[in-house]
Amino acid sequence: MDADERLLHASSFGTAAVAYAEHRPDYARAAVRWALDPAPGPRVLDLGAGTGKSTAVLAARAARGADVVAVEPDPEMLARLRRSLPAVRALPGSAEAIPLPDGSVDAVVAGNAMHWFDMAVAGPEIARVLAPGGVLAGLWNVMDDGVDRVAGLAGVAGGAVVGPRDTPAAWRAETAGMHLPRSGGAARFGSAGRAGFPHGQRRTADSLVATLATRAGLLVMPEHEREAALGRIRAFLAGRPETERGESTLPLLTAVLRTRRL
């Protein structure tokens, strides 16, 4: 994906902020614990926070001393975050222009957002706001295509819906060093660690279609193509015993990519 296409996809979510907040999954608590485990202190920045899916999980740690601030560039997504989490400090800004002082956080977390960052610019910015020894962690929810029905859904949905980070093997290949800064100006980042944690989301056929409809590939697609893709997904789900009636759990993994500022 070139820079213009990445910008088009990255800026598409504001039009679906309400649906995004309603339908996107949160993140496995165990994944967040692992991401933050090496952090030298409690101050956490949720960068590219969207409507607050990862922010809510981070804020739940406040009782154990976490201090969370969220930064989000899209006004519609930021407004939704502020309404749903009024106790969290939420600021306009981006990975390339973080509105925080030098060394002001102990961890930077990005929930399903790091692949949109321009790391040539964002790397030094993230290093700037991180305290020495601070953690940078990306979280992604990926569909567990080791389950037959998930693999079938991925095949029917196509690449616009199930993208290059949306299954475990694809995520490992796509994140093999390309999303982490190799340096942050004068600061350096260590080697990356990876881990995956079981997760799931209760969905009906209709709510699963609504969830998939918030993917960037569909949001930027011409309407007739989008409706055709969603029609194929509905037909597939109607023929599966797990989703032809009622709710079932969509098997997910929360995948984590973690490094430290040296």
Results as ranks from 00 to 15, higher is better:
166 D>E: 14
11 S>F: 00
124 P>S: 07
61 R>A: 14
39 A>H: 06
50 G>H: 11
224 H>E: 15
41 G>C: 06
116 W>M: 07
200 G>F: 06
27 Y>E: 02
220 V>Q: 03
55 T>L: 07
236 F>T: 00
24 R>S: 09
131 A>N: 12
127 A>H: 07
196 G>V: 15
11 S>K: 05
63 A>T: 15
125 E>R: 01
97 A>Q: 01
170 A>E: 13
186 A>V: 09
10 A>M: 06
96 E>T: 03
75 P>Q: 06
222 P>R: 10
130 L>I: 02
169 A>Q: 14
82 R>G: 09
209 V>S: 06
253 L>D: 00
94 S>D: 03
22 E>G: 10
183 S>D: 08
207 S>I: 06
22 E>I: 00
48 G>M: 07
44 V>N: 04
198 P>W: 13
54 S>L: 11
115 H>I: 01
33 R>T: 14
239 G>Y: 09
233 I>A: 07
239 G>W: 07
220 V>E: 04
73 P>M: 05
244 E>Y: 15
176 A>W: 12
65 G>Q: 13
135 V>G: 03
41 G>P: 03
245 R>G: 06
38 P>A: 09
49 A>D: 09
2 D>P: 12
131 A>D: 13
119 M>H: 05
176 A>R: 13
116 W>E: 01
166 D>I: 00
47 L>C: 06
10 A>P: 03
64 R>M: 12
213 A>I: 04
91 L>W: 04
236 F>M: 12
53 K>F: 03
137 A>N: 08
233 I>K: 09
221 M>I: 09
90 A>H: 09
72 E>F: 05
176 A>H: 09
112 N>C: 12
9 H>M: 13
82 R>H: 05
206 D>F: 01
33 R>Q: 15
163 G>M: 01
235 A>R: 14
231 G>T: 07
179 H>R: 11
20 Y>N: 03
115 H>M: 01
79 A>S: 14
103 G>L: 00
168 P>D: 01
215 R>A: 14
169 A>S: 13
120 A>N: 12
66 A>D: 15
240 R>G: 00
39 A>Q: 04
75 P>K: 09
238 A>N: 07
105 V>K: 02
95 A>K: 06
124 P>C: 02
204 T>D: 12
260 R>S: 15
60 A>C: 12
108 V>Y: 01
173 A>Y: 10
44 V>S: 04
189 F>M: 07
244 E>N: 14
144 D>K: 10
95 A>I: 05
190 G>C: 04
179 H>N: 13
130 L>G: 00
128 R>Y: 03
214 T>I: 10
225 E>F: 14
9 H>N: 07
199 H>G: 08
238 A>G: 14
165 R>M: 15
36 L>R: 05
102 D>E: 09
125 E>S: 01
140 W>K: 00
100 L>G: 04
15 T>M: 08
168 P>L: 06
211 T>C: 15
103 G>V: 04
56 A>G: 14
171 W>P: 00
39 A>M: 08
249 T>H: 00
34 W>P: 02
120 A>F: 11
182 R>T: 12
195 A>I: 10
180 L>P: 04
59 A>N: 12
44 V>P: 02
115 H>G: 02
251 P>E: 11
1 M>N: 10
198 P>N: 12
24 R>D: 09
72 E>Q: 04
117 F>E: 04
205 A>F: 13
155 G>D: 11
